[in-house]
Design a protein around this nucleic acid. Structure first.
Lengths: 216, 216
DNA sequence: AGCCCGCTACATCGAAAGATGCAGACCGGG
DNA sequence: CCCGGTCTGCATCTTTCGATGTAGCGGGCT
């Protein structure tokens, strides 16, 4: 079971080096090479490789945008490669749907292992990127204490529905329409929610709903 | 430069195996072993190892809580180890401040490499965990499009102050007091903010302020 | 059965929010 | 210098919100 790889990298010397590393491994087959983003997208859609090795800095279409298109088409797993681990590149690539992000100062072993990893559907990140991603992930959730979660647990199912609507920024009238109840009933629910959660306005309820990740 | 490691794992056989792996590497020094979470915290604070290898399932105090305490004290980097890669464990551990998260089905090499990685301040995740973390990270950002950021850029400084207060869930009266203006003036600002951002209520403005990370 | 609880509904009333018009302050350009 | 534009501020008026009381209805429990 060979892993079919497309190499997208504009610098010919670097591209040649990458291809050489891959050719040294019998399990890889380099099915194509691209020198810019547009070519990368075109070849990915045509060849459907298992993995696209994608440089960030490329002419005509940058690697992040190319990644977005390849992933949107469901063509391949994309492993992004770059010299600089700027936040902008990292976050951009990951949001574009990249399965991994490696820096070019890597060992051949790491690259091989990375391609293997993303080929089987897992993720692979450079260690420094991993740490920052963990940090970025860990921060947002500090807001909601357990007491708030408990209080929300004390709400009835219907009240939670209303709370989710509040989190979406709907007015009482809109909530009533969506949940098929009278506006007066919505007000009743809102009042109860505020009382149970010890909040003073629907705005605070909406923020809490956001933090809890409630969605309608 | 040896790396000082504390092993926290309740199953004696597993603990012994981990210690054996570490002892085989001359760069590691196992400075302590703990059989439960409380002991792990106590030893970490006392011995200040470079890395704590922390099991999730432990008696008396679970590994996630223990991690939180060790990290809060700034004692060590924590590499969490578990048999099951349940979301609950992963997210809990990472939010608790863990530098890494590995599954117990790992190779000895991976463990060694993981400890080395977290010891120098980087992050290390099992590949399957990496993929899910990327997914979890990529999703949240759908909320705020560039157009919203542009619109916020069109606000005046004063209006942005008011918007930040909205994001905190304050009423017009509270905003007026905090920013030292009349409540009527606050209302003017709120109205202008809503018009510029094309929103229909302060609730939506508050949600947007949250997503933008505005804070007072 | 009787009972409690949750959902729904409506009315009423005071408080908060939001739209609108207008005035003084400030600033760069003519 | 004055002029238009923008920012800031305040007051007035209508709408929406939120609290409170009352009540019918259905489902689960004893």
């Amino acid at each position: 079971m060979t892993i079919r790889v497309l190499v997208a990298e504009d610098q010919a010397a670097v591209r040649a080096a990458l291809v050489m590393i891959l050719r040294a491994e019998p399990e890889f087959e380099v099915v194509g090479q691209a020198a810019d983003g547009e070519e990368a997208v075109r070849l990915a859609l045509e060849l459907r490789p298992d993995v696209v090795l994608m440089d960030v800095q490329m002419p005509r279409l940058d690697g992040v945008s190319a990644t977005r298109q390849v992933v949107a088409a469901g063509a391949s797993q994309v492993l992004v490669l770059t010299t600089f681990d700027l936040d902008e590149y990292v976050y951009g690539a990951l949001r574009a749907g990249a399965a991994g992000f490696l820096l070019k100062d890597l060992e051949a072993d790491t690259l091989v292992e990375g391609i293997r990893t993303v080929a089987r559907g897992d993720g692979m990140l450079a260690p420094s990127v991993t740490r920052r991603l963990i940090g970025a992930f860990a921060r947002p959730e500090r807001r909601v204490g357990p007491e708030a979660r408990d209080a929300v647990g004390a709400l009835t199912a219907r009240e939670r529905e209303v709370l989710a609507c509040l989190g979406a920024g709907l007015s009482n009238g809109e909530i009533a329409a969506r949940l098929e109840m009278a506006e007066a009933t919505t007000k009743t629910h809102v009042s109860r929610i505020l009382a149970k959660l010890r909040l003073r306005s629907r705005v605070q309820a909406a923020i809490l709903a956001q933090d809890l990740g409630l969605s309608i």
